[in-house]
Simulated scan of single mutants.
Amino acid sequence: MTSITTKDGTEIFYKDWGPKDATPIMFHHGWPLSADDWDNQMMFFLEKGYRVIAHDRRGHGRSTQAWTGNDMDTYAADVAELTDALDLKGAIHVGHSTGGGEVARYVARAKPGRVAKAVLVSAVPPIMVKSDKNPGGLGIEVFDGLRKALLENRAQFYLDVPTGPFYGFNRPGANVSQGTIENWWRQGMMGGAKAQYDCIKVFSETDFTEDLKSIEVPTLVMHGDDDQIVPYADSAPLSVKLLKHGTLKTYAGFPHGMPTTNAAEINADILAFVRG
């Protein structure tokens, strides 16, 4: 396995495919998944001549099941260590859901020359939880419910999420894929329960407002308006307003997991942005 060991001793697994001198595209997965969630995109961009990289966040997939460091600052620091180790320059960083938050935090702090563009897909910024400053957010009881379900029966919970809202398979007429559901379950169960439990707080309560304001590179924000996990109105349109060079692409009827369910459209639009 290819991995790096971070300063605190955590092993971060990663995939690195394609010519080392090609433009690098790095993919950041959502909760509670792994680098495997990007297989479709990695194969697509590999065939287009790009160098493609994806890692398993600490506590997820094949990385160390760390019980500490499960916070957004450490996630971003892990990415910085990996990009330093691979010496990525002029990279495009693509993040889905929690991975979109990771991209925002990393890109806002990245060393000069490391990042050329960013893509936030169905992403959690600016902040998910409801508060006086964010009245349109989701109540804390929603996230408490996720924590309760994880503690009571993680295996069943990780079947219920992809079977229902994640891919929109609970919508009338949905084209349900059992393989997609089982692959979500497989990825989720590979990771550590403690890290995944902690990550619920990370993706729901981390405020990315200042990160978004600090990003200097062109950023594409992609979101489906039928996202049942990260509601559209309180995420993508607000993020674009905070970005200096942001572009919003809204997809009518697309679900949270649209990189999987609508891969052809998502891949084509990311490619156009990368080439543009």
Rank of each mutant, 00 (worst) to 15 (best):
K213P: 06
G173T: 12
Y158K: 02
K213L: 03
L151P: 01
P165L: 14
F169V: 05
N183R: 09
H223C: 03
A195W: 05
A149V: 11
M222I: 12
G136I: 08
A195F: 03
Q187D: 04
I215A: 10
W185E: 01
T180R: 00
F169R: 05
A149W: 11
V161Q: 08
D144V: 10
G137T: 11
A195G: 13
P218W: 12
D211G: 07
K201E: 11
W184M: 07
L150S: 12
G168V: 06
L159M: 08
P218Q: 14
G164L: 04
Y197C: 02
Q156E: 15
Q178E: 13
K148V: 10
P165D: 07
L151Q: 13
G224E: 07
G136Y: 09
R171H: 12
F157P: 01
T209D: 09
N153I: 00
R171P: 07
S177R: 06
F203E: 00
E205R: 14
V161N: 02
Q156P: 00
I200L: 12
D207N: 14
G137N: 10
I200G: 02
N170A: 05
E205H: 14
I181F: 01
A155F: 07
E141H: 11
S214H: 09
G137R: 02
Q196N: 11
G191M: 00
F203H: 02
D144I: 14
V161T: 10
